Simulated assay, not measured.
Amino acid sequence: MTSWQAGIALSLLIASVSAPAHATLGGKASTIENDRIRMVGRKSAQMVQGEVTSHEVTLENGTVTRQLTRADGTVFAVSWQGPVRPNLNQLFGTSYFKRFQSDNAPVGRIRMRRALASTHSDFVVRTGGHAGAFWGFAFLPKAAPAGFSAQSLHAGAQ
């Protein structure tokens, strides 16, 4: 390897290591503070209930997001409610967000007004609302702790 190839390789390594991590679905709770900063929000609350910790952040626009983590710190669910949808790519992570987009792509030239959703064995999303009052949640069923119910997400998001 030449010196310039080694320099490029080192630059790419540094860039990948220094890129900010985000607490996306399946990610770690230790990066939730990075999300709060990127979404320009303020931490509202952190509540522990059994094996689940809820990290609540209120965004500048009034939208409230919650990221739920297991005892090992893995984010297994997110929810939101407020006047504006949050950055779902950031909350879901790129791979889950692309699946969500693909599941909700318009067919042909017809655009339907409907709630957006995705249902897979490893990834579930439900959204709804209207201008000024949006809600939604996403979770990883296989990553959820025993006894967790999606009903709690739905109730908390509306």
Results as ranks from 00 to 15, higher is better:
40 V>G: 08
125 V>R: 01
32 I>N: 12
127 T>W: 02
107 V>Q: 14
80 W>I: 05
137 F>M: 06
53 T>W: 03
1 M>V: 04
129 G>E: 13
27 G>P: 01
84 V>W: 02
86 P>V: 07
54 S>I: 05
54 S>N: 09
104 N>E: 09
147 G>C: 10
122 D>K: 02
90 Q>S: 11
66 R>V: 14
23 A>M: 05
68 L>A: 10
60 E>I: 10
60 E>H: 08
61 N>R: 07
143 A>L: 07
50 G>E: 09
31 T>E: 14
131 A>K: 12
24 T>I: 08
28 K>E: 15
52 V>M: 11
107 V>T: 11
51 E>P: 13
91 L>W: 01
14 I>T: 07
62 G>L: 10
117 A>T: 08
77 A>W: 01
144 A>W: 00
31 T>R: 09
8 I>P: 02
27 G>V: 01
16 S>R: 05
30 S>Y: 04
126 R>H: 04
47 M>E: 15
62 G>F: 07
127 T>P: 02
87 N>V: 08
38 R>H: 11
9 A>C: 01
46 Q>I: 06
90 Q>T: 04
125 V>K: 01
112 M>T: 13
12 L>R: 04
126 R>W: 02
47 M>P: 06
122 D>S: 02
82 G>I: 04
134 F>H: 13
70 R>L: 05
105 A>Y: 11
128 G>W: 03
86 P>T: 09
9 A>H: 04
113 R>L: 15
142 K>G: 14
144 A>N: 01
141 P>T: 01
75 V>K: 00
39 M>Y: 09
153 L>E: 02
53 T>P: 05
46 Q>V: 05
99 R>L: 08
143 A>D: 04
91 L>N: 02
144 A>D: 00
110 I>R: 10
37 I>W: 09
53 T>Q: 12
34 N>V: 06
95 S>Q: 10
30 S>C: 03
79 S>W: 04
83 P>T: 06
112 M>Y: 12
130 H>V: 11
155 A>I: 07
20 P>R: 04
78 V>F: 00
97 F>S: 04
84 V>H: 06
28 K>I: 01
142 K>N: 15
65 T>E: 15
101 Q>T: 08
55 H>Q: 12
109 R>I: 10
137 F>T: 00
95 S>T: 12
85 R>W: 06
35 D>S: 05
131 A>C: 04
146 A>G: 11
27 G>M: 03
